[in-house]
């Protein structure tokens, strides 16, 4: 192992890992409930979702873009799933496939419009965010789907490993491994990265950059839809407001996880496990802030400070690595 990862210590992931451990130590000593079985189980359910949302954002950041519609898209897909199961009586497995396809389709719209207009995806997804969320509220009349099949809601409250871990976390970790494999070892994954890193060079080497960007947006829609299903299973109902107005509640974790994880906003670099660690760190801090009793109204303030601190630290790290590499 040692000769294989000598550079690991220098990476962002290593720094994150240390931070995660430090925060776990701080919170376990300073609060009572942090290591309780209940809290760890609750954490695992929240982390699972934050990882998935972070990954969904990460694959669009890969193209140098952003996906503001993430939350609106995920909730729309989840509501579609609720409608399939409750109103149409479609079996769970088929519903999940339909929801994922629906999410990918919404992602495709984002990608298609972005590529065709050449406008930054920020503006496109800002528009689709309000379109998706508006249609969803209009069609559902802002009513929740609460009579979902028991097999589905039971899955969300299942407790594994001596009742410590939610199965949702296992789905997220598995997704991380699949994405890692795709980006590292498959042809299409390498093409996606190449297109994001240097579109002109990728185009010249015969990669259709436009198509790759659309794929990234579709993947983002797929992952957001998966997050939507997971949230539905966790809550036990599909509620239009479960990600806040316009899905805004998902936005901060969505950006925090990949940015903390070392994904470059300019595109062309993904860190699947960095994003996972980033999501874990965010959830830990969020949970810890509540347990320390900083006051629920100040939690947002501290999350903002942490995001700012994280990007500044990352900037400093980059600066020093560049300086060191020039010296050596």
């Amino acid at each position: 192992m040692n000769n294989k990862i000598p550079n690991f210590v220098k990476t962002n992931q290593f720094g994150l890992l240390i931070l995660v451990i430090v925060f776990i130590c701080i919170f376990s000593f300073s609060t009572d409930g942090f290591t309780s079985r209940f809290n760890i189980y609750a954490l695992s359910r929240v982390v699972a979702l934050d990882i998935m949302i972070g990954l969904a954002m990460m694959v669009v950041i890969l193209t140098g873009g952003l996906n503001l519609s993430l939350g609106a898209l995920g909730v729309s897909a989840a509501m579609f799933g609720g409608w399939c199961m409750e109103s149409m009586g479609i079996p769970i497995s088929i519903t999940i496939i339909l929801v994922l396809a629906f999410g990918s389709f919404l992602g495709w719209i984002n990608g298609f419009v972005t590529v065709r207009t050449g406008v930054h995806s920020f503006i496109v997804t800002l528009a689709t965010m309000s379109i998706y969320f508006g249609f969803m509220t209009l069609l559902t009349e802002a009513e929740a789907f609460r009579k979902l099949p028991e097999a589905f809601t039971n899955f969300g409250s299942l407790k594994l490993f001596n009742k410590y871990i939610s199965p949702l976390l296992i789905i997220s970790v598995l997704t991380c491994f699949v994405l890692y494999y795709i980006f590292k070892y498959t042809d299409i994954g390498r093409k996606l990265i190449a297109a994001g890193a240097n579109p002109d060079a990728a185009e010249l080497s015969g990669i259709s950059v436009d198509r790759m960007f659309i794929y990234c947006h579709m993947l983002s829609g797929f992952l957001a839809a998966l997050a939507g299903i997971m949230l539905t299973a966790r809550i036990g109902a599909a509620i239009p407001s479960m990600a806040g107005h316009l899905g805004f509640d998902w936005l901060l974790p969505a950006f925090l996880a990949p940015v903390l994880g070392g994904t470059l906003l300019s595109g062309g670099k993904v860190t699947v496990f960095g994003t996972m660690l980033g999501a874990i760190l965010v959830t830990l801090i969020n949970n810890g802030l509540y347990l320390i009793d900083v006051g629920e109204f100040w939690v947002r303030f501290f999350l903002g400070i942490i995001l700012l601190g994280a990007v500044l630290l990352d900037r400093a790290r980059e600066y020093f690595t560049v300086k060191n590499s020039i010296v050596s």
């Binding site: 906003l265 100040w298 939690v299 947002r300 303030f301 903002g304 400070i305 700012l308 990007v311 500044l312």
Partner: peptide, 27 residues
């Protein structure tokens, strides 16, 4: 100041300050 001195995208900086200012407001 933060945007220009760090060279980090204004999007991320203002996302962070959005939470800071809003958090102060709620606090």
């Amino acid at each position: 100041y933060i945007t220009v001195k760090t060279g980090i995208s204004a999007f991320i900086i203002t996302l962070a300050t959005l939470y800071i200012f809003k958090g102060m407001n709620l606090g």
